[in-house]
Amino acid sequence: MSETRYELKVQDRTENGKQAMKKLRADGWVPVIFYSHGSEVVQLKMAYPDVREAIRSGERIFNIHIAGEQRRAVIKELQYHPVTEKVLHIDLHGVRLRDVVEIEVPLVIKGVPFGVKNEGGVLQHTIHELTVRCKGSDVPEHIELDVTGLRIGDAIHIRDIKSDVWTILEQGDVLLAIVQQQQKMEVETVETEESEFGLDEEEVSGEEKDDE
């Protein structure tokens, strides 16, 4: 995890209600609710460009200033518009560095497998994030998966990834990466209509003569 955390640019929010939220979004703001330990709930807002920048940062734990006090928070939920995919609402949860958190982190593939470079194989991987449990101070920026040693038929599962400070919550037998032999395209010979029906040129010519 980086020592300098990304700071969310939030402002206090007094607007409430459906119509007020609609106008808030039309003015370029995204409603934010900050939940912390106990029953603390703080209503905030962020400018939409700042929201996009924060998401693209790849950070998982953010600094946030509330009432002049610096806090730390994770994005617990993002609500998107079903058509435009713009962010409509953000839920933030306050965390302390000693707290145990469960959080999704990116899975990053490193290297080119031996089986791809030298054996004509292809690398298959479909999972791009994993959920980890750890202290707030130990949240990784990403989990790196080194695939350089994989030959054709070799695979990496979640159980193969070890750490002393965090635990992956998905099942250990989940496949993360595998090198497979490339599938060869089979060219099928298309039979001609004549061979399919057992007709040859002489038979066709004979039929034409009979018709005459």
Rank of each mutant, 00 (worst) to 15 (best):
H125G: 04
Q183Y: 06
I61L: 08
T126S: 14
R60N: 10
Y48W: 05
G68T: 13
V132L: 05
T189A: 14
V105Q: 13
T4F: 14
R98W: 13
L199V: 01
Q183A: 13
T84M: 06
E7H: 10
E194I: 01
T4N: 15
E202N: 06
D200N: 08
V187R: 15
R151P: 02
V147G: 05
L44N: 03
R71K: 15
F34I: 01
R56M: 10
T148Y: 06
L175H: 02
R56T: 09
H128F: 12
R13H: 00
E191P: 07
R72Q: 13
D173T: 05
S36Y: 04
I64H: 00
E196D: 02
V174G: 03
R133T: 14
V174K: 12
E202I: 00
E170M: 10
R5C: 03
V132P: 04
G206L: 04
L24I: 01
K9C: 00
Q11F: 08
L92F: 03
K135V: 06
I33G: 01
I66R: 09
D173Q: 06
V112L: 11
E186M: 11
S36L: 02
R151G: 11
G149I: 07
E102G: 08
V83Y: 11
P31I: 01
Q79M: 04
N118Y: 15
K18D: 08
R151D: 06
L169Q: 15
Q124T: 07
G136N: 13
K135Y: 15
L175R: 04
G115P: 08
A47F: 07
R98N: 14
E170I: 09
R96Q: 14
T131A: 11
H157A: 05
K22A: 12
Q43A: 07
E77L: 02
V132S: 09
A54Y: 00
V105H: 12
V139R: 13
A54K: 01
Y80G: 05
P31R: 02
V87P: 02
L107D: 12
Y35M: 08
D173G: 00
R71I: 00
E102V: 10
E186R: 12
E194D: 11
V105A: 13
D50L: 03
S205D: 11
Y6N: 03
I158M: 08
E194T: 03
V132N: 09
S39F: 06
Q70M: 15
I66S: 07
E53S: 10
T148S: 15
V41F: 02
R133D: 06
H93C: 04
E85D: 12
I55L: 14
D91N: 09
K23L: 08
Q124S: 10
D12C: 04
E53A: 12
V179W: 07
K117W: 07
H125M: 02
